[in-house]
Design a protein around this nucleic acid. Structure first.
Lengths: 349, 349
DNA sequence: TGTTAGCAGTCGAAAGGTTAGAGTGCTAAC
DNA sequence: GTTAGCACTCTAACCTTTCGACTGCTAACA
């Protein structure tokens, strides 16, 4: 059912007001925000109607009204449909332009910037790419027909695996295999190696079996890896009155503490470029909301960045900030004046 | 001034009791804990004396007493001097024995185990080892006399550095330099490379200058890196009544949020094997304590693991747990029965 | 039919008052 | 030096009262 335009206006004002003050909004307040001349009694009857429709509730009879979940949803629809506010977040490029880059630092800094700009807790998930890079492979014969495999990758070590090897292949077989295999794997990513697969027949044939087994190990390893979750600005929650109650704060911190669960929550709406989830995203008990954005560097999707905060969240601001960060990472945002000067160098990435 | 043995006993009982209940302890309670026959009036006069000496305070006149900082310090001295409780923490070896190991996972798991075993928030710092491993060095001539250097290390990329190169060295000079330099650096750690320094005269001489410049870049990079800080079990703080007040909780979370500061705090007492700091460790306002232990793997010091909690902390348990973890990492702890079975394989690390 | 002023009614938050009980310090006796 | 006894203090919990913020309703008006 469509709302009358006056109802929509009143509801919009009320939501915005409540986002700002966190206090129930009275008919009088709306009257003074309304612009045109209108009596509070008229507003009261509209409010009563909106309450009937489920958009508002009263904490108690002698209080103003506060928005419900559907009201926020309606509000966010408008925010997303309208022009995005032009927000420029200072400091993002400072570290992106730096000469020395550690990926973790970039992520941590970005999370911090988002948190500082929005004043909410920010979460970034780096999706587990299963393209691991192999540094070294070692084969050690332990007894006839069995060899120990140790694989050193960029992110860790795969050890203590025994594989079967062909017997009766002569004394130098394992050391030879070690060299061949290591040549095939070292410095490459798993997908690069797999695409070589076709080429390794011919003289490599005797090692084909071992090759396959190691690929299996790597794939098992890749599937067991999990996304990395970064949280910044946890203490920001205390800036918002909904977390003044210790029990609410506890629930919130507990969620942030369970990184795996949090990661799943973040990556749930994976097909949506910019997703807003309002109220109890499954597993979150307090009335919280999450806004998450996919982000990619140079076209490749890296993961998700987002914000978690109270249902009464400044969606407009949060959406704008996340949108801006997205653009910066995609290289779409125009640089600031002062940045233009040394743009030539900075563009190299 | 030495305390009489009765005073010491009473103070010890009171501290232990308070650690358990978090409530002011009355003379009557101590009477019932005391063992021998003694009247509460006698205890009261002893308590009054201990208060005079600064070991106790009363929240108000009709309440029992709670220990002060000096009282905890005295108590901890006894804990550290006495035999460490034999604590065995389940699950530590589970992941240490795993076939697939990512360093971050080990750290995160360890932190989680410490937190779960102690019921406090746990912090682990991995000290920045300045022994970076270089994966690849690229030299690209940009114009006469200048080349762009890109260094790829295990932990990140050093880019956008322009160095001066000798002119008039012929057309192939930079590409040749690129190969030589890359051979010298790739796959080695910074300290390994530096120890090669002497050997690179002779035919390498023309590249010596570039070599030095790259070493400089790497050293600058190494000095700019910082320790990695892992926090687990933040929500555990809510299990303790001192954090029921929102302001205390906020201070605590804020500290945990500032990772750099936290890292500094953790690594402050770096010469002490197992350090206990009680009450306001500089920068911590709430009355908190930290217990930290150095830990090493295979002799090499890796960093620090510790626990942060209220001043009223179960020091005995925390010290025992950290001590046990230390032993496990040093390979000193005896394996459990069931672990002995597949010990041969597990010992390889 | 929609809008408005006026007014009675409701409810929470703040302030003040009372009570019960826990624990002390002091005193006097042993 | 130790102890029983007792008066005293102070908090936490509970009640009561008051104040004022808003509302819903009613009746009048355009």
């Amino acid at each position: 059912m469509e709302l009358s335009s006056r109802k929509r206006k009143i509801l919009g004002l009320l939501v915005e007001r409540y986002i700002k003050t966190a206090e129930p909004v009275s008919s009088g307040e709306i009257k003074s925000l309304y612009g045109e001349e209108i009596s509070s009694a008229t507003i009261r009857s509209e409010l009563a109607a909106l309450e009937e429709l489920g958009y508002l509730v009263q904490p108690h009879v002698s209080a103003g009204r506060i928005p419900t979940e559907p009201a926020y949803k309606l509000y966010v629809e408008n925010v997303l449909a309208g022009e995005k506010k032009e927000i420029r977040v200072a400091g993002v490029r400072d570290y992106l332009g730096k000469k020395i880059v550690e990926i973790e630092d970039v992520v941590r800094n970005t999370a911090r910037v988002i948190s500082d700009a929005t004043n909410y807790t920010s979460v970034i998930v780096i999706k587990n790419t299963d393209d691991i890079r192999i540094r070294e492979v070692k084969l050690v014969e332990v007894d006839a027909g069995r060899a120990l495999v140790v694989i050193i990758t960029d992110s860790g070590v795969i050890k203590d695996n025994i594989i079967e090897i062909p017997v009766n292949m002569g004394s130098g077989y394992v050391t030879a295999a070690n060299d061949v295999i290591n040549d095939l794997f070292a410095g490459k990513t798993l997908s690069e190696i797999k695409s070589q697969n076709a080429d390794i027949d011919g003289e490599m044939a005797p090692y084909h079996d071992i090759f396959d087994k190691i690929i299996n190990l790597l794939e098992e390893y890749a599937s067991g890896r999990h996304d990395k979750v970064f949280v910044e600005g946890t203490s920001k929650m205390f800036h918002h009155p909904e977390f003044a109650e210790i029990s609410t704060a506890r629930e919130f911190i507990t969620l942030l503490d369970e990184k795996e669960k949090l990661g799943e929550l973040m990556t749930a709406d994976d097909d949506i470029e910019l997703s807003v989830r309002i109220g109890k995203p499954d597993g979150l008990n307090g009335n919280c909301s999450m806004v998450t954005a996919r982000y990619s560097i140079g076209g490749a999707e890296i993961g998700k960045a987002g914000v978690i905060g109270p249902e009464r969240m400044d969606y407009d601001k949060v959406v704008s900030v996340l949108h801006y960060i997205q653009k910066v990472f995609n290289g779409e945002a125009e640089p600031d004046e002062k940045e233009k000067k040394n743009g030539e160098i900075r563009k190299r990435k």
